[in-house]
Simulated assay, not measured.
Amino acid sequence: MITSAAPPLTPQDFASDQEIRWCPGCGDYAILASMKKVLPTLGIPPHKTVFVSGIGCSSRFPYYVSTYGIHSIHGRAPAIATGLKASRPDLSVWVITGDGDGLSIGGNHLIHAIRRNVNINIILFNNRIYGLTKGQYSPTSPIGKVTKSTPMGAIDNPLYPLSIAVACEGTFVARSVDTNTKHLAATLQRAAAHQGVSFVEVMQNCSVFNDGAWNYAKDRETKADNLLELEHGQPLIFGQEKNKGIRLNGMEPEVVEIGKDCGVEELLIHNEQAKSPTLAYLLSQLRHEYGFPEPIGVLRDIQAPQYELELNRQVEFAKEKSGEGDLDSLLGEGETWTVA
């Protein structure tokens, strides 16, 4: 019997018939477009792909891709995705969340999904504001940010998503920019290929309530001096003329001018495969407000035991040792009694 091979997947295979309802100029459009380009390249059909989201503008995402999807409750997408992956390891599971959804009420679920190394892909849209609820400050809003809920300026110390992911021993931690579609697509592809949890922060613009929050990382005139594009095995070099770098001065990183302050050989070399998270954490702490370029690309990519595989091994071992089990017997055994 001769069978013909299935035709290759295309972006149209993942295109939903739903009207996309984001504000004009929202960075979510660019992220969605990049995702639709990446999904066909993975070779995983739509019926084997699931998007799980929480609450927020980003969480409309499952409606706009023609796959299985769960639009869940505020902050709980990582927990739901963990249960789904544990029961169906054959599925490709993506979590779509935002800085408000994932780092406020969902912060606890996010850190535990990362530390467990569940084989899911977590994409966090960071626009540094609550967009769906109309412009309150979020866990990533900078100190002094004036919003509807902080009319005299935010006084909370902001969270830094990359630092949280690395501190939780995330096995794949990366960052990209919504409008840098080539870089974003490459980052999403690498996240999907990783075996274990992948965490990707996307610098994303909210054109209505926090327009221009990432201008320093997007403007053509300034981005080369404000972004550090990471490349495994290469020195940390940046700048319009590629004449700046980062080296260690004792335990502290510092920006230097190549050829004036030092040679290339003195610069830090990026190693995304380092077992220790020390370098990745250092990179996650480079901040624009401290005079450093901010990293984009893959900070860390290592292998470690996957939660759902270990869990299912234990389940199979228990079945081999004790049999399939019976729920009624389990509920009725031990110290039970009947009330007449």
Rank of each mutant, 00 (worst) to 15 (best):
G54F: 10
G100V: 12
G27K: 06
V95T: 11
N180K: 02
S176P: 09
H183C: 08
I122V: 03
L268R: 08
G43S: 06
A280F: 04
F317R: 00
G325Y: 10
S198A: 14
L236N: 11
H109F: 01
S284D: 04
H47I: 10
G100W: 04
V50K: 11
A340F: 15
E257V: 15
Q234F: 01
S322D: 03
T67C: 14
V65S: 06
G75M: 09
T133A: 05
V173A: 08
P139H: 06
I44T: 11
S149E: 11
C206L: 12
P46I: 03
S198G: 09
T181G: 01
Q273E: 14
I129D: 07
G27S: 02
S34E: 10
Q12Y: 08
K37N: 13
E169D: 00
G239V: 10
L103N: 03
V52W: 01
E254M: 05
Y137S: 09
L9F: 02
E324C: 08
R115D: 03
A81H: 02
D261R: 11
V264W: 07
V50I: 12
R116E: 04
Y160R: 13
H112L: 07
L32N: 14
I120G: 12
V65W: 06
V177M: 08
I258W: 15
D261T: 13
D28V: 08
V256N: 09
A304Y: 01
I55F: 05
K37Y: 09
M152D: 13
S92M: 15
I2Q: 10
V118H: 00
C168W: 01
I114G: 07
G69S: 07
S176C: 13
V166K: 07
N121I: 00
N117C: 07
D99W: 15
L124A: 03
T179Y: 03
Y29E: 11
A86R: 02
G196A: 15
Q285C: 15
L268T: 06
L132I: 09
L110D: 06
T222Q: 15
S138D: 01
S329Q: 05
V166T: 08
T67P: 06
A81Q: 03
K218Y: 13
D328R: 11
I129N: 11
F51V: 14
I269S: 01
P158D: 02
H71C: 13
P7L: 01
D328G: 07
T278F: 00
Q303R: 02
V173G: 02
A186E: 03
F199W: 10
I55D: 02
K223A: 08
T147H: 10
I73M: 09
P277G: 01
S16D: 08
P305T: 10
D99G: 11
G212R: 14
R190D: 02
V208G: 08
A192T: 06
